[in-house]
Structures are given as structure tokens and as C-alpha cells.
């Protein structure tokens, strides 16, 4: 059977607060939107939606006219020179700080960036996989600053919340994902949010190409 390829328009899940299921992270969300602190730091496991949240914040603030920048430190080709003059931004989102913990040149660059942002009354939002005291930061000046502002643990979603998050994301894509099928996916597929969302993306494309609805027999082939 030949499969009709969908149109060459990539459907991206736009990273917005509307497509973010906040569940147990409401305090963090409120803090991100309302705080006056220079720095908000939040930490939690990989694949739980931290990057999505940072990108949503960038999206929202840029829409309000803020100058924003997003730095994914897991990206191996980034260099500390990326931070030069970044303090001119109103908001800098630093994702996956743990990737550069212990790297002296990065730590010094981040320390200087922090000081400049503070002087200019800008905002810094940082995500990492551990709480500030547990991160292997070598520069004490930076380490102590990480715990200076607001620190939150990013809570992983419970299974029922994951189901709701998956359905919210499907809805944003204009895709009908029934309770039954969503529950099936959670029972049979890897349950971290990154895997679930990428599965959803594959299912979306496949259902479009096959002109089929998402039913259990249909989704079974993709797990």
C-alpha cells in the first residue's frame, strides 16, 4: 500500500504556556510570571518539560516586547562567547546548566553575566537537573548566586497528568486523542514526556498520511 506523504509543511508544537500542563508546577509558573527577583532556578529530571517551559516563557515575554534570549547549554557547539553582551536582554533563559558545571570558562562567563544582569535589573531563568548545592560548580561566586534567588523543584507529572498533557498537546495540533487511546499510549510506550511527545508527532504525521483517526489498532503499529 502506498502511503501518501503529508504536505511539506512541518507542524511544530509551539512552545507556549497554553500547551504546558502545569499540574504540580503552579508555584513555579506563578514565580516565572510574577517575580521581581533577578534569578529563578528550577531543577528536575530530564524529559519532563523544563525546556518547553523556558521556551514558552521566551514566547510569552517576546510577545510583550521584552528582548529575550534562550541558551540551550546541552548544545555542545555553544561557547562561553555566546554570553558576550547578553546582559542587554531583558530576559535570559539558560537551559540545562549542569552541562557546563565544572567548566571554568563557562562558569566565569555565567558569573559575569549574572552580575551584569543584576546591575541592569534584568531577569535570568535557569534550569538544571539538580538543586544548586548539588551541582558540581567550581566557582564559589557562581554557586552561591544560584541559590540567591528563587529555587524550585520541577515536579514530574503523574501518569494521569501525563495523559492530560498529551491530550492538551494533541488538541493544540488539532488532533483528536481519546481518553482510551491516550491511556493505551501511557500503558505501552516509554513514559517520559519527551518520548511521548515525539510519539505524538509521529502519530500525527501518520494519521494525516493514512487519513485515519487515532484508534488503538492504528497506534499499536507505532509502539
Amino acid at each position: 500500500m502506498s502511503v501518501q506523504l503529508p504536505l511539506g509543511v512541518q507542524l511544530r508544537d509551539s512552545a507556549t504556556f497554553a500547551s504546558f500542563h502545569s499540574a504540580h508546577n503552579r508555584q513555579l509558573l506563578t514565580a516565572l510570571k510574577e517575580t521581581r527577583e533577578t534569578c529563578v532556578y528550577f531543577w528536575g529530571k530530564a524529559g519532563t518539560g523544563k525546556s518547553h517551559l523556558l521556551q514558552a516563557l521566551c514566547h510569552e515575554k517576546a510577545g510583550e516586547g521584552w528582548r529575550v534570549a534562550y541558551l540551550p547549554l546541552a548544545e555542545p557547539d555553544l561557547m562561553p562567547a555566546m554570553l558576550d553582551d547578553m546582559d542587554q536582554f531583558d530576559l535570559i533563559c539558560v537551559d540545562d546548566l549542569h552541562y557546563v558545571a565544572g567548566k571554568k570558562d563557562w562558569e566565569i562567563a555565567l558569573f559575569h553575566c549574572y552580575n551584569r544582569i543584576q546591575t541592569r535589573a534584568g531577569r535570568l531563568v535557569i534550569s538544571a537537573n539538580q538543586a544548586p548545592p548539588s551541582l558540581p560548580i567550581g566557582l564559589p561566586d557562581l554557586a552561591s548566586r544560584l541559590g540567591w534567588g528563587l529555587v524550585f523543584q520541577f515536579h514530574e507529572l503523574a501518569d494521569e497528568d501525563k495523559q492530560a498533557a498529551l491530550q492538551l498537546r494533541a488538541q493544540a495540533r488539532g488532533l483528536d486523542l481519546s481518553d482510551e487511546v491516550a491511556a493505551y499510549l501511557l500503558r505501552h510506550a516509554p513514559r517520559d514526556m519527551s518520548s511521548l511527545f515525539s510519539l505524538l508527532e509521529r502519530l500525527d504525521k501518520a494519521s494525516l498520511a493514512a487519513q485515519r483517526k487515532l484508534t488503538i489498532p492504528f497506534v499499536r503499529q507505532f509502539i
Binding site: 508544537d13 518547553h52 528582548r67 529575550v68 534570549a69 541558551l71 548544545e75 533563559c93
Partner: peptide, 18 residues
């Protein structure tokens, strides 16, 4: 570009441009 690129690429490289 916001549609074509991933949110990470867009926020990292395109959004900071003035």
C-alpha cells in the same frame, strides 16, 4: 521561521536578532 524551526533553534538564534 518560528513555524519552520524548532522552538529551540528559533529562541536561541532568531529571536535575539534585532
Amino acid at each position: 521561521l518560528e513555524q519552520d524551526l524548532s522552538p529551540q533553534q528559533f529562541n536561541t538564534w532568531i529571536r535575539p536578532l534585532q
